[in-house]
Computed example of a mutant assay.
Amino acid sequence: MQKSVKFKNRSWDVAANLHLPDHFDENKKYAAIICVHPGSSVKEQTAGHYAKKLAEDGFLALTFDASFQGESDGEPRDLEDPATRVEDIKCAVDYLTTLAYVDEDRIGVLGICAGGGYAVNAALTEKRIRAVGTVVASNFCRAYQEGETDPIQMLEAVGRQRTAEANGAEPMIVNWTPKSPEDAKQAGITEMDMVQAVEYYRTSRGAHERSANKLRFTSMGTTIAFDAFNLADYLLTQPLLIIVGDQVGAFGSYRDGFTLYNKAASKNKSIHVVKGASHYDLYDQPQATTEALAKLAPFFKENL
């Protein structure tokens, strides 16, 4: 069972879905897991897939649209702001503590792709999060630093665009990915992760009307410098489970997973490699996600 809810981040509403376990009883106390979506995604996509399955395992699972995106409020629209994304998670914890049927001492977080980076970063300073799971977690700054675009040139372009917008220009909205597999092919894109990103987000496989493929260009000014794992060697102390696939693409989640595993201060930490799975297989493909969930559900049951 699922119901639509809202919670506050500062002065605006964040739109969320609460996935309830079978035979839900509001007089009982449940462990809750916040499922954090990737960049460009919305709550109904891969985060919703994992939330639904975790609810079937007896957890209460919460998904939400990032502030400024999807059904959530906040201006300016289409902004990807790491600090606010992290605050969204903390506000989700706030919300869960107000529910009589949530055990506030048993709240965990699961993040997918960029949502994994945000989940980790939130857990550094949010100790009400008792356990952390990630699936193909991506650390933004590493991805940008190793991309085809020079980060200094990108930041200079961001500065020019901010100046233009301050002087009346229309906001620059760019695409996260090519608009279709045909567009990707025409652009000569053959790299596995990007090809599969288009297949997931821009076809019937995973497309959602509110996952609009829009990114405010000036977002790059903050995302490019956001190190999700900064201070994890001191502050990430919660139980930690990292899921990666061994089909390695340019997005780097395989390497990011091992970087996080080696860095985290957590005494209880493990990493599981799903053989034969790519980054996007772990978004929705049954064989890969079933294996991931077979590790995640027992991990959360043990630690929440």
Rank of each mutant, 00 (worst) to 15 (best):
A207Y: 14
Y261H: 10
T163E: 15
S219Y: 03
A207M: 12
S278P: 00
H272P: 00
V274Y: 09
L236K: 11
E191G: 09
A166R: 13
V274L: 09
Y283N: 07
N213W: 05
G276V: 06
S270N: 11
S266N: 00
K275S: 14
S211M: 11
R216G: 01
Q285H: 14
F258D: 04
A164Q: 09
S204R: 15
K185E: 15
S253W: 03
D193S: 12
A207D: 13
T237G: 04
P178M: 00
F226N: 12
I243V: 11
F251W: 12
A228I: 00
M194C: 08
S266H: 00
P239A: 08
K269Q: 04
Y261S: 01
Y200G: 06
L215D: 02
L241N: 04
T190H: 07
E191W: 06
Y201N: 07
S219W: 02
Q161R: 14
V198M: 01
H208Q: 11
S266Q: 03
D256V: 07
L241D: 01
Y234S: 12
D193K: 10
M194S: 08
D281C: 10
Q238G: 02
F217I: 00
H272K: 10
A250Q: 13
T218C: 06
N175E: 12
D193A: 03
K263F: 10
Y283H: 09
R205P: 06
H279I: 06
G206A: 03
F258W: 15
A207N: 13
V273I: 14
D227T: 08
L241Y: 02
Y234T: 12
R162P: 02
L282E: 07
D246V: 02
L282P: 05
D256K: 03
L260A: 06
H279W: 07
L282K: 11
V198I: 13
W176G: 10
G276S: 10
D256R: 03
Q161T: 12
P286I: 01
L282R: 09
A197E: 13
Y283C: 05
E165W: 05
G168R: 07
R202S: 07
G257M: 03
H272W: 06
W176I: 11
G188Q: 04
I243H: 06
D284G: 15
V174L: 10
A277Y: 04
Y283P: 03
E191C: 11
H208A: 09
R205L: 15
H272V: 14
G257V: 01
F258C: 02
W176A: 14
E191F: 09
M220E: 08
S219V: 00
G252H: 04
G276H: 02
H208D: 14
K185L: 13
Y234F: 09
V273Y: 03
I189W: 00
N167E: 10
Q161G: 04
R216I: 01
A277K: 07
P171M: 09
M192L: 15
V174C: 06
K269S: 03
I189G: 01
F251G: 01
D193I: 06
M220L: 15
K185A: 15
G257Q: 02
G206P: 07
I271T: 02
Y200A: 07
S180L: 08
